[in-house]
Design a protein around this nucleic acid. Structure first.
Lengths: 213, 213
DNA sequence: ACATATATACCATTCGGTCGGTATGTATAA
DNA sequence: TTATACATACCGACCGAATGGTATATATGT
């Protein structure tokens, strides 16, 4: 049973606070550069609480990736881009929504698991796998709309709903890399505009083979 | 004047060996998780040599990013994708070339500066800037061909040669993130296929406005 | 000889992690 | 109710190892 901590009871239980601290600090500094002490300080918790709730720093990394998957999937499932009646419009609305949430500090809109997996893919299989679940799990939430759009437009190119869903995530992840390099969000927006245009073309041109059968 | 080291003279001077060690280790473990001791061991060099050649670990990070920019720009300028006579074909050949060099271990084909900048964009402005120079510098090498192709096909959409060049790099960087999450190169290839198709559509459809003036 | 390049011993600090202890909640039973 | 018993959650001092960095010595090329 979680319980408010003694030190700062108003902030809730230690585990959640540590996961929130991890989300914030890892997005800013990276996983390795974030020490257990940093996390405890940010969470207002002691090391005892840390190692009571997590077996190791790596276990916190895995938990942070799961926490990210859970919170983001709730966030996206409640987002307004599901409203349009046409499936293609929902896909395009998703991209517009992704653009709209690019605001404020880089560490506030970039992806925790994308950063995390680049850093530890080789040294921590557990974290890598949890990140993969988050990324590809989110991608899969787009598949139904893409698939319906492909049927509606009678598309039968040499790609699939799954591959296009994954590609959108690749563009988004790459957009974040460019944004961090540029220390500015403008090129991330720019790439999402390219993605938007590319998907329009994919669904609205003679080049995307429209079968007649 | 560089000089072969005493310990392993056949491997050349310490500075170059440290930069090569950095390229390899940082791509595998990340920057923070790579210690100065690790670098020295991998390079077959002592700490004295390290701090003689680099003022600090961060300075090595900056130098490693410049080293990456130099070696990759030489590599790409000699690559065969410049051969086609049509500019659009050169752009497409570039993407095919990028696909063709996705081979072997993840740490052998992924991008040093893309990984590096995700990790330290906030904590080390010097490294961030060096990474940005490498990424956007490489993107700019594509601009002439894209621009020429846009003129040849009389394209006047709401994008530019610069933006498309950057977008290709976003896709490539994102493809590497997905590859690391999946611990496999297949989805990286898949995204480059999407990029290839998208560029074909962009240059070969009624949807890309072909002005008559 | 003299500047440069490499080697080695060493230092203060920080790291992830451990451990004994305390405070709080809950189940049981008189 | 109240006393007892036990489990859970948190605290904070402490540990050995590793960290980035320094100081000094030595080797090499001109």
């Amino acid at each position: 049973m979680p319980r408010p901590t003694k030190l700062q009871p108003e902030r809730g239980d230690a585990k959640t606070r540590l996961l929130e601290a991890a989300r914030s600090l890892i997005r800013t500094r990276g996983f390795t550069a974030t020490s257990v002490g940093d996390l405890c300080e940010e969470a207002g918790v002691t090391k005892g609480a840390f190692f009571h709730n997590f077996e190791s720093k790596e276990a916190l990394g895995v938990a942070a990736a799961h926490f990210w998957a859970d919170t983001t999937s709730a966030f996206f499932s409640e987002a307004p881009y599901h409203a349009p009646k046409e499936p293609l419009q929902r896909v395009l609305a998703y991209i517009e929504f992704r653009k709209s949430i690019i605001e404020g500090e880089l560490s506030e809109f970039t992806c925790l698991v994308g950063t995390l997996v680049q850093e530890v893919y080789s040294s921590s299989p557990g974290i890598r796998e949890a990140c993969a679940e988050s990324i590809f799990g989110h991608a899969s939430t787009l598949e139904a709309d893409i698939s319906a759009a492909m049927q509606a437009y009678n598309i039968s190119g040499d790609f699939t709903a799954e591959s296009l869903a994954r590609h959108t995530q690749a563009v988004i992840q790459g957009a974040f890399v460019l944004a961090k390099a540029d220390n500015n969000s403008r090129f991330a927006i720019e790439s999402l505009d390219h993605l938007y245009r590319d998907i329009c073309l994919l669904f609205d041109t003679p080049n995307s083979v429209r079968g007649s059968s």
